[in-house]
Design a protein around this nucleic acid. Sequence first.
DNA 1: CCATCCACGTTTTTT
DNA 2: ACGTGGATGG
Length: 749
Amino acid sequence: MSIYDTLNDKQKEAVFYKDGPLLILAGAGSGKTRVLTHRIAYLIEEGVNPWNILAITFTNKAAKEMRERVNNLVEYGAESIWVSTFHSMCVRILKRYIDKIGFDNNFTIYDTDDQKTVMKDICKRINVDTKKIKERALLAEISKAKNEMITPEEYEKENASDFGKKKYIEAYREYQKQLKKNNALDFDDLLVKTVELLRSNGDVLVHYQERFKYIMVDEYQDTNTVQFLLIRLLAGNNGNICVVGDDDQSIYGFRGANVTNILDFEKYFPETKVIKLEQNYRSTQMILDAANAVISNNARRKEKSLWTENDEGRKLVFKRLESDWEEAEYISDEISAYIRENDCSYSSIACLYRTNAQSRILEEKFVRDGIPYKIIGGQNFYQRKEIKDLIAYLKAVDNGKDDVAVKRIINVPKRGIGATTINKIDTFAQANNLSFYDTLLNENALAVLGRSASKIQPFVDFIQKLRAQIKYESISDIMEKILNETGYLDELKAEGTDEAKSRIENIDEFFNKIVDYEVRNEKPSLSEFLDEISLIADIDNLEKDSDYVVLMTIHSAKGLEFPKVFLCGMEEGLFPGKAVLYSNSDKELEEERRLCYVAITRAMESMTITCAMRRMSKGEMQYNAMSRFVKEIPGHIMESDIYMGSSSSGRSVSKDSGSSNISGRISKPTNNSSAKAILRTRAFDTKQYTVKKQQVLEYGVGDTVKHTKFGIGQVTNITEGGRDYEVTVEFVTAGTKKMFASFAKLKKV
DNA sequence: CCATCCACGTTTTTT
DNA sequence: ACGTGGATGG
C-alpha cells in the first residue's frame, strides 16, 4: 500500500507531475492541501532534497499544518522544507541581505497602527488637512502603488499632471523617507524590498534560485503583482513552479490581489500543465448546489463544475428574523439544539459574517447562554494598547532608530514629558538629522531642552541599561524589568478597575508568549521575536481540538471547513456591502459574490443562513432587505418560512411575534451599566475557554525532568503564579531556565 | 504639563 | 454606541 492510493486520478496526476510549471485549478473542498502535501512527499521520494523545496501558504497556521502533514507522510527531512507565508519568507531573506539595499538588518516592521502614526506626522509636516484627505486614504493609495511595484518616483511621473494627486505624491515620498529613517518596513515593503533586492543583486538572486528548485504556492488566486514578480524571479524563466488556486475564491482584490495572476498564468509560463480538480470531498450535494447556483451568476470566471459523491444531505435553512438581537437569539438556540441532536463538540460549528462588527451581538448572546466561543479577527492580541506599549519598549531596545516606538513610550507611564518637549526634540532631530532616540543621547539637545532634560534622563538611562543587558539576559528578564521598574504594572494594579485587570491578564499572556518563544527556539533573539509577532494573524491562534464555536469573518474562514456553518447578516447593504452597492461596479459585486461562495463552501453537512429586518449600526437603526445572494439559491434546496420575492417593510410582520420579547428576556440589562461592564470584561477574557490550566504537576522540586529542546535537568524551584506554575529547572547542558509549566511540557524521568 | 469634557466619524474585508 | 482627538481649564 502506498500513501498515494487514496488520491483520485486527477490528484495523482498533479502529484506526479514533477518538473515544469504546473497550474492546479482546485475547486473548493477538492483536496488541494492533500495534493500539495503528497506532492512534496513525492518530490522527496524522487530524490529532491527537502532543502530545495519552498512552499508558500496564506497564513502561518496553514504553514504549520502543512509541515505537520508532510511530516506524517515522509520519514525525515520535513523540517528543512521552507514552508512559510510570503511575508515571513521575505523577512527571512531581508534580515540577511537588506543591508545591500541600504537598510540595517535589524529593521522593524510597522503594522497599520504604526503606519498611521507616521502618516499623521507627515501630514502635519507637509500641511495636509486630515479632514479633507484622511491618513487612511493616503496609505491606501500608497499601498496600491506598492502592490503594483510602483516607486515614489514612478508614482510622481505617472501622476504629475494630476493636481489632485499632488499631496499623494508628496506623502508617498515623505512616507518612504521616514520609514527608511526609522529603519522600518511596512507589510507591503517586505515584498517590494525583497523584489528590489533580488533584482539589484544577482548573486543573492542566484543563491535563492539555486536553493528553491521546487516552488509551490497555495491560494494563488489571492497573490498580488509584487508577489507574482517575486515568485517569477525565484522560479527563473522555466522553473519548477506549481501554483494552486481557485479563481472563484479570489476575495482579496481590495488589497491588491490580482486575479489575472491565475487567469493568465499560462501566458507567463508557456509550457504550463493545467490540471483541474473538480471532485468535492467536503460538502453535501445540497450545499454544493447552493454554492454553484450563487457563483454561476458571475460572468468572469474559468468554467468549472464541482461535483461530489457525498450524500445529498439536508436542505439549507434560511431564516429571517425581526432584529439583529433576535438573529443572535435564534443562532444561539440553534447551536444548542444542534449540539444536543448531533452529540458533537462546539468546535464543529462556525458563525460567519461579512464584517467584524457583527460579532459583538453574537458574543453578547453567547455569554448569556453559556455557549463557549472564540472570536477570530477584529483587534489582534498584539494590537491591544498595553501590548503595543510593551512591544514599543522592546523595539526601542532593539532598534533605536524606530522613532514611532520611542515616542510611544517616552511618556508611558507618565514621566512629565509632554507634547511641547517632544516637539522640541523633534525639531532638533530634524535639524541635525538624528533619530529621535539619538537626540535624547545628544548633549547639545539636552541643553536646549533645559528643565525637561532632567525628566528625560532616567528614561534614557533605563533604555541604555536594557540595551546593555539584552546581550546576555533573556527577553523575559528584560520584560520583567520593563514591567516592574517603569511602574507600568503598579499603575495598572493601583487602578483596580475591571478593565485594568483584564489588561494585566493580557500582559500576563504576553509574558507567557515571550517565555514560550524562548522555550521553542534554540537561540532566541529579541529581533526575531519581534519579527515573529508582527506577522501573526489572529487566525493563527485557532486551535483544532478546543471545544468552542468559532466566530469570524468570511475572509478569515478561507481554507477552513466546519460540519455546521451559520452565515448571518445576509442583507443588502451589509452583504453585499453599502460601498459596493453605491459604487455600482460589477467587478466589486462579483468579489462579494465570490465571498458568499467561499462562505457556503465552508460547510460540510449543514448550513443555516440568517438575516435581520432591522439592525443597529453606527448608533442608528438600519432597515435592510434580504441579500440578493440568498435569492440566488434555488428554492427547492432551501427551507424557508417567508416568500422569497417579498419586499415587505419590516413593520407588518413584526406585530404578533413581537409579544415574545418581554417574557422571553426577563433579565435584559440594557440600562444596567454594571452588568454591561461584567459582560465587557468577560467578553475580553477569551482565556476562560482557551487556556487549559495544568492542575497538577507530575513532578516536584528535586525531580529529574526532560525538556524537548533543553534535554535533561533537575527541578530546583516551583512557584504558583496566578494562572500557571513557574518552574525553575537546572539543565545539564542548557543551564538554568525559568519556564511556565503549561508551555514547557516537562516530562518526569 | 495634565486631566476632563465634548464633538465627531466610524467599518468592509488582512498580511 | 463607542472611542478618538481636539479644546479648555487647572
